[in-house]
């Protein structure tokens, strides 16, 4: 049913990849990826290690360009604009696309300054406004109540799960349209993981989320759509329930049922 609505265009596409190829030096990491990511939904990218799912993520905010010797072909269209256009500045682009990494990576600054850092980059913000922005972001990330009394203490003193929620808050504070998450729970315990998954479901209304995950259960729990990658190719893509219950491709089925890692 979900699939129908997408096809009918009821769900507005947020991001579209068209024939995306990507190379690290001579090795081709992505082959002709065509993928539509619907707005205000959670799309999970799954597949075995080295299948290219993290590369896809890093193409979207053009972080891959920082590595020497990479190149791409094809297009990624975000809200009607090809992000590889000449007039697109990757720095400007990254303000619209937040990213949360595998390992929580708060800056060695205070909790407050971690959130404020990204906001301050683009404009001067007064103290009262910044206080509000920080509180707002921390509340959205379900962290406010835990840290409101120690905003000035170092972020590195937080637990792993708190740190990761701080990283989410840090990304949300600059009001991105898309949030990229690269296995955000792989370094966390189950309770911390559950908190973050709850958070994602709430954030869906605000931001389009693309999450790379190694855990099939996580994909099934949180995502609306799932894309299965194998050896740099997009094998199958559709509503999560359909992918998990009746995959069209044999490869997808074998992966989902755990017959290869």
């Amino acid at each position: 049913m979900h699939e129908k609505t997408v096809e009918a265009g009821v769900l507005e596409p947020c991001l579209e990849m068209k024939g995306l190829d990507f190379w690290y030096g001579d090795t081709q990491a992505l082959k002709g990826i065509d993928l539509v990511v619907p707005r205000h939904r959670i799309t999970a990218l799954i597949g075995p290690s080295g299948c290219g799912k993290s590369t896809v993520l890093r193409c979207i905010n053009r972080m891959n360009e920082l590595i020497e010797g990479t190149r791409h072909e094809g297009r990624i269209v975000l809200d009607g604009r090809d992000i590889f256009d000449d007039d697109v500045d990757p720095v400007a682009l990254r303000r619209h696309i937040g990213m949360v990494f595998q390992k929580p990576n708060p800056f060695p600054k205070s909790i407050y300054d971690n959130i404020a850092y990204g906001v301050r980059l683009s404009r001067k913000v007064g103290k009262t406004e910044m206080d509000r922005v920080v509180q707002d972001a921390l509340e959205k990330a379900h962290l406010w109540d835990e840290v409101k009394d120690r905003l000035k203490s170092p972020a590195t003193g937080l637990s792993g799960g708190q740190q990761q929620r701080l990283c989410i808050a840090r990304a949300l504070a600059v009001k991105p349209r898309v949030l990229l998450m690269d296995e955000p729970c792989s370094a966390l315990d189950p309770i911390a993981t559950a908190k973050i998954e709850d958070l994602l479901l709430e954030l869906r209304d605000e931001v389009t989320i693309i999450i790379v995950t190694h855990s099939m259960q996580q994909a099934a729990r949180v995502s609306d759509y799932t894309a299965f990658f194998y050896l740099g190719e997009l094998i199958e893509h559709g509503p999560t329930r359909r992918i998990f219950e009746s995959p069209n491709e044999q490869l997808t089925e074998r992966y989902i049922t755990g017959r290869f890692g």
Binding site: D79, R81, D87, V88, D89, L121, S122
Partner: peptide, 16 residues
């Protein structure tokens, strides 16, 4: 018209 991801005046200053 400049796209939404084109540098604005502030970013152009930062890039300078």
């Amino acid at each position: 018209t400049p796209g939404p991801f084109a540098p604005d005046a502030a970013l152009r200053r930062r890039q300078t």
